[in-house]
Simulated assay, not measured.
Amino acid sequence: MGVSVKTLKICLLLMCCWINQALASNGVILQYHHVADDTPPVTSVSAEQLRSHLQYLQDEGFDVLPLPDMIKALAENQPLPDKAVAITFDDGYRDILQNGHPILREFAFPYTIFVNPAQIGVQSDQLSWDDIALMGQQGVTFANHTQDHIHLLQRLPGEDTQQWLARIRNNILSAEQQLADKVGYSLRYLAYPYGEYDENLQALLREENFVGFAQFSGAISSASDFTALARFPAAGIYANLQTLRVKLNSLAMPVLTNSLSSPVALESQFPSPQLTIDLADIRPHQFRCYINGDVVDTQWQENQVTVLSGDLALNPGRSRINCTAPSKRRPTRYYWFSQPLFKPDQNGRWRD
């Protein structure tokens, strides 16, 4: 017995409604550090570059939302504006106030700074608590970046897993309390220093009801893992507006499963993760994956794709596998997936 035309129309309508809802449940978070010309280039934008980014957001009709508004909407599976963006800074540098804050106020764009309470007012390049109070009165929100920007994955000599996690938990919770005492609220957000984390730290954040923010590329959605939300770095080599605009218009890749349970990699070569993808708005033949900027092969079996990393060497430090695919319905917008990988050096140290 064949399927009626009416039934097909209903199915197509339901699929279109589902896709529209998925497209409306996406946001992009930008990540900055310094706003200066004399700071490390890899983590810096000039005031002119920041202005060009903000001007693009304004000219192209992006909705720049307070980070808490975006996270709350996605956590509650509520729709966001079509092009929703949140702006974040890590590390609490004073040049954010000196060079970035006036420009952001000019555009009336809200933003969040992740700070290390133990360094506030102590290091000369850091904001003071008075600075933070002033900026808070002008709409800036502040969140946790640990007390002192340590490598969270680094264990002390002789430290077992239980002792390590207890130390990290104390660091995060004490920083949260100190920050709450100063600003009068607690978002329970944590930006991982250096973007590094593993499944143990994700479980810790889940237990403590924290939202985690990472440093790998990608949009976020209601289906994202809220213990490791993607943010697009927008400084250094990533400050180029021509490439940044593609990222600003990106969508969260609808990954249903991922064979990699941890981003920590100890092997000498890149892994070959297997992903299950919801293909309602994606054509497999347009799906591309990249390592170090080069396209790598993929292998499909129904809606499962294996990233064939081959024999590419995985060096100590931080690496990524990025995959993108254009939307069927909105081909100028790309779904984006990023798999971060963290590898210690031969001495078990994590690199800055």
Rank of each mutant, 00 (worst) to 15 (best):
Y194G: 09
N292D: 12
Q346Y: 07
L256G: 06
E159Q: 14
D281L: 02
I291Q: 15
S52L: 10
K328M: 05
W336K: 11
E196M: 11
L248V: 08
Q55D: 12
V64Y: 00
F232S: 02
D281N: 13
F337D: 03
H285P: 04
L275K: 05
V35H: 01
E159F: 06
L229K: 01
F216R: 13
A166L: 08
S128K: 10
P66W: 00
A73H: 11
R330A: 07
P193T: 14
S319A: 14
E176V: 06
Y32G: 00
S309V: 05
I103V: 09
Q274R: 14
D198P: 07
K9P: 00
A313L: 09
W129K: 14
A75I: 03
A166I: 04
G2Y: 06
G236H: 11
T141G: 01
Q126H: 11
T7P: 00
F287M: 03
S46G: 12
L201W: 03
S250E: 12
D69I: 06
I172Y: 02
S25D: 07
A203N: 12
V296A: 01
W336M: 07
P79E: 14
Q163Y: 05
S261A: 12
G236Y: 10
V28M: 03
I132R: 05
P263W: 04
L179A: 02
Q346R: 15
V295P: 03
Q339G: 10
I321H: 05
D181Q: 15
D125R: 14
S128W: 04
V307E: 02
M1K: 15
C11P: 00
Q126A: 11
S272A: 14
M15A: 12
F142G: 00
D148F: 03
E199F: 01
D311T: 12
H151N: 13
Q126P: 04
Q339E: 11
S174G: 04
S222M: 03
T141K: 04
G136S: 13
